[in-house]
Design a binder for these strands. Sequence first.
DNA 1: GCGGACTGCTTACCT
DNA 2: ACAGGTAAGCAGTCCGCG
Length: 883
Amino acid sequence: MFQPLEQYFRDTPITEEERTKPKEVNIQREIESLAFKLETPSNLPESYMVGVTYDGEKRAALVKLYDPESSKIYFWYDNTSHKPYCFSDLPEKELQKIEPLMSHSGFDHFEVVEKYDPLKDQKVKMSKILAKDPLAIGGRPSGCIRDIIPKAWEADIRYYENFLYDRNLVPGMPYEIEDGNLVPVDYKLPKEIVDAINKMFENEPKEYREFIDMWIPLFQRPVPKIRRVAVDIEVYSPVVTRIPDPQAAEYPVICVSFVSSDGMKKVLLLRRPERKDERIKLPHDVKVEFYDDERRLLIEIFKVLLEYPVVVTFNGDEFDMRYLWHRAQKIEPSLTKEIIPIEVGKDFTSMKYGVHIDLYRFFFNRSIQVYAFNQKYRESTLGNIGMALLGLGKLELNKPVSELSYEDLANYCLRDSEITYRLTTFDDDLVMNLIMLLSRIARMPIEDVTRSGVSIWIRSMMFYEHRRRNMLIPRPEDLLALKGVTVTEAIIKGKKYKGAIVVEPTPGVHFDVAVLDFASLYPSIIKRWNLSYETILCLHPECRDNKVPGTPYWICTKRYGLSSLLIGSLKDLRVKWYKPKSKDEGLPEAVRDLYEVIQQALKVILNASYGVFGAEHFSLYCPPVAESTAAIGRYAITNTIEKAQSLEIPVLYGDTDSIFLKSPAERQIKGLIEWSEKSLSMDLDVDKVYRYVAFSSRKKNYLGVYPSGSVDIKGLTGKKRHTPEFLKEAFSEMVQVLSEVKTEEDFKQAKEKIKKIVRACYTKLKRHEYSPEELAINIMLGKLPEKYLKTTPQHVKAAFLLTRKGIELRPGDIIGFVKVIGEPGVKPVQLVSTNEVDTSKYIEYLESTFEQVLDALGLDFHEILGLTRLERFMGNTEENINN
DNA sequence: GCGGACTGCTTACCT
DNA sequence: ACAGGTAAGCAGTCCGCG
């Protein structure tokens, strides 16, 4: 798979020309060549909407269209005179009396509109206040229209979002320009597929089928391959441990690398007087260019950036793009904001011509990390993600960037671009496809969807739907005042309401265990119970009997709830169509892969759909909706457990949406599933079957072995991220032994093997045979070390020992530390020598880690080590472990 | 002044 | 800036102890 390095690389002498000062160049002329000419054709064939923004100069929405034919971006400016606005409940007459509004320079005019108010369940007349520019509505620190009028509706929506929603445009979908107008591309979807999907939902109500119809084209329309370039820069820094400050941009950019989808691999190097390298050895397909004027280097970078519709970076928002922007202005005054093809915002950077995707922002998103990539990467660093998803890590450095030879610098920098680029291409462009699909579902431009969390995606999806149905979007304070806060009491202090049920596990080893679970429990509940902010606690007296079990809440019986329809339709499309189809061997691989991406994108959204209603910062925050969802979940699982018990199936364990059943008969399982369908209207399925499961008495903590011998480990310390390597190693040896156990009898032998593993580990600890690296506990810094005010945890103590050495640490960094004798008891792994290790602490660790499994097997740690109570009390020495 | 019982903080996990 | 529930380890506090 990987080519041998010697073949792959080529030696290139650094030429005389490259080593000596090149001829003078005319910087001004070079800069002029950067002035890019935007193209706004009056006709353009099928092109994809990749960017949407507001052009302050033209005072209009700007749509960036990607034409797959020419691989170029074309601009389209709104020609429909769409204006910024917000709503007021005051009649025009009243508004006219508000002097600051009437004299506001941004005020344009009033309109009277009729909207459906979902909180009142009736039509209302609203005054629409239109403005000349978006900043007049909101966005300035003071004097905005939304602050002048007493109550403003829909004033916190960005202008271009309003534009998208009002014009029914879907980012990521294909459009044409016809005689200067933007029109959706008429496209016939394969009839068999549309019919097949529709058939599955033929018994659903009309309101529901409308949603299915709306989604189908968004998922089924192909996603184009997009021409793109990955960029990475290296900056000179006199202080090794400090990351250069992009605002100050004090030091020169010394290297830049590009890797693009059209096969370009390029490294640009700044020639520095102190470097006297003779040769440079790089892969044969890599172009190298030397520059001795940093200004020319920057101009060359900008030229490349202008050429590509999509620019991909890793942390470019915070660093690379920002640094280039400030550095350019600092060293060459003619490189003005107008000339540099980068737009620097408060917390992101974008491109003037194309779009900028910062993969760090995307991969950092918890939902992406957990649901799309199943926690395959645990740290959001380029090296970590690259290693986990591509098997390609960063190049190791043996000295600081500023001291590297040209060759090492070029290779290092190139590798970063290579990883960044390949993160967008692996598995047939999985990441690009995922981004495009999320963009369509959330109705958000790529640059926004890759930089925001699920709550913003769901907000956008919901807002779009409100506009499409002419529904007034409620103000958060009205929503909260009307629907109120929660009534149940959480088990955890400080939480707002009661959550899921976790069943006390039956300790021990159990053979032949079936796990049943509700498919997409919470989304199913939201659909089945018609949960939505407007349906819960509705105003109709006749709905009051339709109670949510375990709460005083009732649900509307007259209207379908918006979130119920939205989340319900997405859930059904995933569960009934895309997920099974993605596993269907009868389909071509390309189709399966596409369906897999779609079901992944849906999973990401669905998994968060319940939580957002209980999240204070969500713009449709409605705690009773979240609380009811959890309450119905408890109702479903407790009733299912009772039913299982009435069928005399022992329930060993359960968590939220699952129950673990001991040796159930086929017929019993069938009975349970049918019961669930009939009395709960919920899909209960067999999720997995284990050869055996080992439970200790701890919840969220078990080990299950499948008939194939593969092992599921949940919550056990032995596989947690921070656990020292030596323990993970010993633990995985034990897991290997357990995976081979087929019958009760096999346990005898297995237990003996496990005893040996534990003893061997104990002996090695006692003899100081583990290296500090193997002993290191690796814990992530949740915030800057100085921000720990209430307590100082051990990893923070270790972190301070590092900062004292001048090493900069940031939230998200992982601190490796070893327990040592003496104060403060810990040391960063880098500074530890073997003889100061606190062995007794590690023996305690060994004990607690293995105990979780030994408990279940009926083994005792101390008996394994053959220690008597007295010996344990006295402490034990080298002698008594050797015999 | 010290240790045990307790609470609270922090991280990593499960669903 | 999606939720709540659980485990583990440690920091810090309080109280009693001739």
